[in-house]
Design a protein around this nucleic acid. Structure first.
Lengths: 206, 206
DNA sequence: ACAATTCGGTACCGATCGGTACTGATCACA
DNA sequence: TGTGATCAGTACCGATCGGTACCGAATTGT
């Protein structure tokens, strides 16, 4: 029923569930939730439809687990960024991480959390709402980190943590769109550097 | 065969092709190319499947025409922005226009050129590539406008028109993603204002 | 050895996909 | 008023959609 080991009765699983999930993640990443058929998924996972249903539940739950896997892997730069000592370094780590992750030659260009399901028909609505929440959760976490920086006098008292977080996330998501449009890592790194020049510390008085 | 008037023989069309195309555009905008079924489209257009095929060709051509309609309507702020007298005003018009268009209460949130097809399966590849080209064409037009500003000494000689254009387009596309995530017009206007503060004229010497 | 249990695979489910042949009604032109 | 062209609609096409029942084979604890 789950991917967890349970009682040791019966025939053991004949495939690597983690590796299969990783491959499913790549298919969702490249083709989106609605664009990835079960035939595409199970073909890439190297298992049959029945094995997929037994191991992961159904397509929607497979997508949820693939997104969790994405969080632990390609998107893990996010939590690492929040641990940076200063808000400026946090912002730089987010954008640099976004550039790297969206242009990783071993993965599809772009971001699963963006292109996995940005618009969807009726059947794809749960996946779309899952990603909306995923993106907003990331933004709220960044806002929280920036607010802490204000409280610690790392950012000036005039800084608006919600506004800064939304700006950084907007650039990060825009980088993901540009990567999906074929932009290179170098080109997107310039975008990230340009965006980071617009930081409160560097800002001239209005 | 086309939406144009031709010879005046036979029974005339019984529906407004322009209005039908507008409604199809809204469906593609909200549900994406793959998420919009022919039943969804023809239902919203108020016509039958045969009428749609006779008037627009097929689903892919309907999408192309819906995108052209999007260019003439909701995305028409782009060419208007390029006509602004200075590069700074061009950039502001682009981002302000993006904020308005992606949060128009009469249209789905976000941008058809982004969420219409950012990732796709095999059947949706033509639509995806069409939008990749659409986004890159917009960026190249903006780059051209900025290069003209450099030539006219509106922008400093050190300005990199390609880099600036990609930065502005990245923010615009990020705004579209944020709008699709539920961000309000006011919140996104702050993002646009923040991004515009990062303009060469305002930049402190490095 | 036996029984319990889970495996992976085939075959199939009803529904929907994009697309089309055909039909009878409806119009413009002569 | 013919007459021919085009309309909108019904019915249907093969293929694929996500999902499931059932199967013999394989591996476990007893």
């Amino acid at each position: 029923m789950t991917t967890q080991n349970k009682a040791h009765v019966g025939r053991p699983r004949g495939f690597d569930a983690d590796e299969a999930l990783r491959r499913a993640m790549l298919v969702f990443w490249e083709q989106g939730y609605e664009g990835a058929s079960l035939a595409d998924l199970t073909g890439a996972m190297g298992i049959t439809k029945t094995s997929m249903y037994a191991a992961f539940g159904n397509k929607e739950q497979l997508f949820r687990k693939a997104l969790a896997r994405y969080d632990e892997g390609p998107a893990s730069y996010g939590p690492r960024a929040w641990a940076e000592p200063t808000a400026a370094k946090v912002a730089a780590a987010i954008l640099n991480g976004a550039v790297e992750a969206t242009t990783d030659p071993d993965c599809p260009p772009g971001c699963l959390g963006v292109q996995g399901s940005l618009a969807a028909g009726e059947l794809g609505l749960p996946a779309r709402e899952l990603l909306v929440e995923w993106r907003n959760a990331a933004r709220r976490a960044l806002e929280k980190r920036f607010q802490r920086a204000v409280d610690e006098h790392d950012l000036p008292p005039s800084a608006n943590s919600a506004q800064l977080a939304r700006y950084i996330m907007t650039v990060a998501f825009g980088i993901a769109v540009e990567a999906a449009s074929g932009a290179s890592r170098e080109e997107l790194q310039e975008v990230a550097d340009t965006a980071l020049r617009n930081w409160p510390d560097f800002q001239r008085p209005q």
